[in-house]
């Protein structure tokens, strides 16, 4: 039991542990703080799928409502954001299936266009590398974003993507191999 509590604090962010209810019961006031904390990241996560701002906001709202309804299913050993991403991804896929069942949903990095600050950073090798990421297939983009932008662990990515941890490692291995072989990745 003590180990579980220790794991909980080890896995959750410091900000999350301050907001998340320790007893696993959440009321509207507590949940409002969680919405405040995660809405920006979650909205952008969903926007990578929808590439439409209004849809992203609507689905973000749906995701939060579902999270509130099923808060008793949240496992505090994992980060709250990873749990939100899991719900959000399913919500996005269900929404897309209902609207366009024949089209395959793809995941895009920074599809809404770079900000002026990013344009200034284009000379940076990291920016060039992320431009290459945009050219990868959707599963590779998805796993790279979750790993290196959202900072999720392999286990959390596996939960979000509903894959095995080995499957996530293989995706990362292949994606990194593709990036390594691109000319923009200079070793110097």
């Amino acid at each position: 039991m003590a180990e579980t509590a220790a794991m909980t604090h080890a896995r959750t962010d410091a900000s999350e542990s301050a907001v998340l209810p320790p007893d696993g019961v959440v009321d509207t006031a507590r949940f409002a703080a969680l919405v405040e904390e995660h809405q920006h990241k979650l909205c952008n996560f969903i926007h990578r799928y929808t590439r439409n701002r209004q849809d992203a906001e609507d689905l973000t709202q749906d995701t939060f409502v579902k999270a509130f309804r099923h808060f008793h299913r949240y496992d505090p050993r994992h980060t709250f954001s990873a749990w939100l991403y899991t719900i959000a991804r399913r919500t996005v896929y269900n929404h897309h299936r209902d609207r366009k069942p024949t089209d395959e949903l793809s995941f895009e990095v920074a599809a809404s266009g770079p900000s002026p600050g990013d344009v200034a950073d284009r000379s940076d090798r990291a920016s060039a590398l992320w431009e290459e990421v945009r050219r990868l297939k959707s599963p590779y983009q998805e796993v790279l974003i979750l790993k290196y932008v959202d900072g999720l662990s392999i286990e959390e990515i596996a939960r979000v993507l509903d894959r095995s941890q080995t499957g996530v490692k293989i995706l990362l291995f292949r994606a990194r191999g593709l990036l390594r072989n691109r000319p923009t990745f200079s070793r110097s």
């Binding site: 920006h40 909205c43 409502v65 509130f68 992320w130």
Partner: peptide, 23 residues
């Protein structure tokens, strides 16, 4: 290290009313 040093994504700021709509 280059992947971790990702440029700031061209992110969108959610509507200021998103939280109130959820609540």
């Amino acid at each position: 290290s280059r992947l971790r040093a990702h440029p700031r994504q061209a992110d969108i700021a959610p509507s200021p009313f998103l939280k109130s709509k959820v609540l």
